[in-house]
């Protein structure tokens, strides 16, 4: 241990707080702080007021250490989609990444598609409602969630999922118009269907009746059978309950 590290040096603490202390000096400071109670106190006091330290302790006391608990509580069973979408950080990040648009009614652009809004968000992706100006129709664009877009494995899975779904032609398996990438966001283009998810429907209306369960179950099974016989295997299935025969 060097003589230096035994000496109290207020400027060294100030430098540390400014983030300007070189690594070797930091090691010296830490060694000094091992035993110098007056510098320990000085560091605490220079970092924040006693009231600030207390506020932090009091405010965070009931949280879990990784700060995940409350968000889990709050996203579970969220009934209203509006507030969910506008509070969802994944949605925010996707919206920030949209290219600018000239159309004041639109949020932005992905490729040549004009984005009109957000229609859903789930664990691995966000679904946008978009207008395809070339064919003058609305489409749904599923964007890989931003927190997954940096993962090679997630991107591969997303691409496989799209290929698997694109290979299947069946009325209960949603068609895939295309797959592309914009601003580092992989996305796939599907027909825009107005309707609600099965989850939403059960949340809103309670348990389904027997006839409904059988009808939807039949559609799922028939879509799965088509996927199994026509396409490569996929862990995820795009499924859309049709209402025509409801």
């Amino acid at each position: 241990m060097s003589v230096d590290s035994q000496q109290c040096d207020p400027t060294r603490i100030a430098c540390f707080l400014e983030g300007e202390l070189p690594l070797d000096a930091l090691t010296e400071l830490q060694r000094h702080l091992d035993s110098c109670t007056s510098c320990q106190t000085q560091l605490d006091d220079s970092t924040a007021t006693v009231a600030m330290w207390q506020s932090a302790a009091e405010s965070l006391h009931d949280e879990s250490i990784d700060m995940e608990s409350i968000s889990t509580v709050l996203t579970r069973g969220e009934a209203d989609e509006l507030a969910k979408h506008v509070t969802d950080d994944g949605v925010r990040r996707v919206v920030e990444l949209l290219a600018p648009t000239d159309d004041p009614q639109m949020l932005g652009r992905i490729g040549s598609y004009e984005i009109a809004g957000v229609t859903g968000s789930g664990g691995n992706g966000i679904v946008l409602k978009a207008h395809d100006p070339a064919l003058n129709r609305y489409v749904a664009i599923k964007v890989l969630a931003p927190h997954l877009a940096s993962s090679g494995a997630a991107r591969q899975r997303f691409a496989r999922e799209a290929q698997a779904a694109a290979a299947v032609v069946h009325e209960n398996v949603i068609a895939i118009h295309g797959v592309a990438e914009s601003q580092g966001m992989p996305y796939l283009v599907m027909p825009y269907e107005r309707g609600q998810s099965l989850q939403r429907r059960i949340d809103d209306n309670g348990p389904l009746g027997l006839i409904e369960i059988l009808r939807i179950g039949l559609q799922m099974a028939s879509g799965l059978a088509a996927a199994h016989s026509q396409g490569p295997s996929s862990q995820r299935i795009f499924f859309w309950p049709t209402e025509s025969n409801a």
Partner: peptide, 28 residues
């Protein structure tokens, strides 16, 4: 039969918050 809320109602807020700074403030 299902009753769909028009998607436009929930899109309008994001449209109103086109200003990036305001949008940031809203999410926060």
């Amino acid at each position: 039969m299902l009753v769909h809320e028009p998607p436009e109602t929930r899109e309008s807020l994001l449209i109103q918050l086109r200003d990036a700074g305001n949008r940031e403030s809203w999410f926060e």
